Amino acid sequence: MSGRLYLVPTPIGNLEDITLRALKVLKEVDLILAEDTRTSKKLLSHYNIDTPMQSYHMFNEHKTLDGIILKIKAGAQLAIISDAGTPAISDPGFLLTRACIKEGFEVQCLPGATAFVPALVNSGLPSDRFVFEGFLPLKKGRQTRLKELAVEPRTVIIYESPHKLVKTLLQFQEYFGEDRLISISRELSKLYEETIRGSIAEVMDHFANIPPKGEFVIIVSGYKEKKK
Rank of each mutant, 00 (worst) to 15 (best):
F105Q: 06
R98D: 13
G85N: 08
N14L: 12
S185Y: 07
I12T: 02
P118A: 07
D205T: 12
I72H: 02
K213G: 07
F105T: 04
S185F: 10
G198D: 10
N48A: 12
K41I: 00
F105C: 07
Y159P: 01
P118E: 10
I18H: 00
I218V: 15
A88H: 05
K226E: 15
L78G: 00
F135M: 12
R154E: 10
K24R: 13
S199D: 04
A84R: 03
I32K: 00
G141N: 12
T39W: 02
M58R: 12
D205A: 13
K63L: 08
E160H: 10
K27D: 01
I182A: 06
P212N: 14
G93Y: 03
E225A: 11
A113I: 07
T39P: 00
G124V: 05
L169K: 01
D30H: 14
L138M: 09
V117A: 12
V166S: 09
V121F: 09
H46F: 15
R38G: 04
D128W: 11
L78Q: 01
V107E: 08
K24P: 00
V203Y: 02
Q77S: 15
D66N: 13
K27S: 07
K139H: 15
V203R: 01
V131P: 01
H57G: 01
L181K: 15
S127L: 10
V217G: 00
K102I: 14
E202M: 11
R38S: 05
H206M: 11
Y47S: 02
L96A: 04
I200E: 05
E35H: 10
A115W: 04
Y6Q: 03
G177K: 15
Q171V: 02
S45K: 04
I12S: 00
S55N: 13
L95C: 02
I218M: 15
V117E: 05
T97I: 05
N209R: 13
I80Q: 03
D128V: 08
I182N: 01
E28Y: 04
T64V: 13
P118R: 07
T51R: 01
L149T: 03
L170Y: 12
A201P: 03
F59K: 08
R98Y: 11
D128I: 08
V217Y: 02
K224Q: 15
L146V: 09
T144A: 14
S185I: 06
P92S: 07
F207A: 08
I69S: 04
I182V: 15
E28F: 03
H57R: 04
K63A: 07
P211G: 06
E194L: 11
I18Y: 00
A76W: 09
L44R: 00
G134D: 08
I210R: 13
G112D: 03
R154M: 10
K63S: 10
H206L: 10
V151I: 14
D36Q: 05
G75T: 13
A79S: 14
P118K: 07
P211T: 15
T51Y: 01
G214R: 10
G75L: 11
F176K: 05
G112C: 06
I157W: 01
K139V: 14
L15H: 02
E152M: 12
G85Y: 04
E152T: 13
E202R: 09
L181R: 15
P137S: 12
S82L: 06
K190F: 09
L95T: 06
E106A: 12
D50I: 01
F116P: 00
P126T: 09
